[in-house]
């Protein structure tokens, strides 16, 4: 599904990613763990196409396409979804309009018919119910005045509506209490299946108790320094990143 080879990238002249090699097969959930400053967020932004990152080498293939050649909206339309670490507030943009516009843009790009307001509301209500989110969230401005937990739930709601092939969850657990963490994780787990892959980026092992990964990779100093099964996360929790650093 996703294949990253020798990816290097700079921010303002400073090299952050120093040669990432990573493959996420169809249907698998992989976790990337690493300490602060290891390049986790840079990787997620480079994959989603945010400006300000200069790709200096390597390649990324997503669902058979050269991902790095696509605009952010084209990446979304081809099935990539980034759940933001800090979801952006959009004052004056209603959440319902935002969600419907996004869903229809993606449907249109996929050659599916667009949904009118009533059809959209029906779909949105089903998703809201499944995620235990109140309907009033549709009426509010996008993320405006949302608590940290509400913002993350709104990200998962967007993911549930857009049904991506690959979701990148960037520190989705940060700022979440245990109840919110459970709801978010349930949302991700509900999508798991043969057509869905995910890259879960996190600092802590806690999230991986709820979203159990097929593989865990340790990112340090802009490189993947170790890969293993879910037990690697437990080891990191017990021994800290220093142990990996020593081993690497």
């Amino acid at each position: 599904m996703l294949k990253i080879e020798g990816l290097t990238a700079e921010v303002e002249g400073k090299q952050i990613l120093k040669g990432i090699d990573l493959e996420v097969p169809v249907g698998e959930v992989h976790a990337i763990m690493g300490p602060n400053g290891s390049g986790k967020s840079t990787l997620s932004y480079v994959l989603s196409g945010r400006e300000g990152y200069e790709i200096t080498g390597g390649s990324v293939t997503f669902a058979g396409q050269d991902l790095l050649a696509l605009e952010p909206e084209e990446r979304a339309a081809s099935g990539l979804f980034l759940a933001f670490q800090y979801p952006v507030e959009l004052p004056g943009v209603g959440n319902a309009l935002f969600l419907r516009t996004a869903l229809n843009a993606v449907r249109k790009a996929r050659g599916e018919p667009e949904l009118d307001a009533m059809q959209f509301l029906k779909v949105a209500r089903e998703r809201l119910k499944a995620l235990q989110i109140g309907e009033d969230m549709l009426k509010r401005g996008v993320n405006v005045g949302f608590s940290g937990g509400e913002k993350k739930r709104n990200e998962v709601l967007q993911m549930a509506l857009l049904q991506p092939k690959l979701a990148i969850l960037d520190e989705t657990d940060s700022g979440l209490d245990i109840d919110a963490l459970k709801i978010v994780s349930d949302g991700v787990n509900a999508l798991r299946g043969p057509g869905f892959s995910a890259l879960v980026i996190t600092h802590y092992q806690r999230l991986l108790d709820y979203i159990v990964p097929d593989r865990v990779h340790v990112l340090m100093g802009g490189r993947i320094v170790q890969s293993g099964g879910p037990e690697l996360a437990k080891q990191l929790e017990a021994e800290g990143y220093a142990s990996v650093q020593a081993a690497a």
Binding site: G49, A76, P87, A105
Partner: peptide, 24 residues
């Protein structure tokens, strides 16, 4: 730029994303 990227990252083409932000 952050708001524009957020909308585009959800699949909304840039001209439409700009229009939404101007309307807002």
């Amino acid at each position: 730029a952050e708001q524009l990227f957020y909308l585009r990252a959800r699949g909304i083409p840039e001209p439409r994303a700009r229009a939404m932000l101007v309307e807002a």
